[in-house]
């Protein structure tokens, strides 16, 4: 890298944008996500919500299978406080490798079968301030 390159404003700008993006992503990934009220697992298939399970209310682990068009099938296990895909017929099995999730940081996605499991923090209804009336 010569001194001339270093003075290139385009390079400086691109480098700065990339560093900023990396830093922002890193902060977002490492940011702790405290949630006292537990999570609700939303299971989507092809964008449709097919099941919604409050993980705090689960006492005994249980399994069920999500099937879709084209022989898609994902076996999901629900445990108290966590959820995961334990077997699937997709080729790469990334969804199984991801194991069990217990916070909303990263959803489990099976792209070939278009299944997404997302954890949503349980809302404490007491704390939620809902207006009685809105005037304009």
């Amino acid at each position: 890298m010569s001194a001339k390159d270093r003075g290139n404003p385009a390079a400086f700008l691109i480098g700065a944008v990339l560093i900023l993006l990396s830093a922002a992503s890193l902060i977002f990934i490492l940011l702790p996500k405290d949630q006292e009220n537990g999570y609700t697992a939303d299971i989507y298939q092809n964008g449709n919500l097919i099941a919604s399970i409050s993980l705090d209310e689960v006492r005994e682990p249980y399994r069920f299978t999500v099937t879709g068009d084209g022989d898609c099938s994902n076996e999901i296990e629900i445990r108290p406080g966590s959820i995961g895909i334990i077997s699937a017929n997709c080729p790469d099995k990334l969804c199984v490798l991801q194991g069990f999730i217990s916070d909303s940081r990263l959803p489990i996605t099976c792209l070939p079968n278009r299944v997404v499991i997302l954890l949503r923090p349980n809302k404490d209804n007491e704390l939620e301030i809902t207006p009685d009336i809105i005037t304009y």
Binding site: S25, I29, Y44, P107, T109, L111, L118
Partner: peptide, 22 residues
């Protein structure tokens, strides 16, 4: 992925994918 799964939830992969891509 967002278009195919039609699930806004996949966008929470954004920070991971941005970092790994760079």
């Amino acid at each position: 992925a967002f278009a195919l799964t039609a699930t806004p939830g996949v966008l929470s992969y954004l920070p991971f994918l941005v970092l790994s891509g760079i």
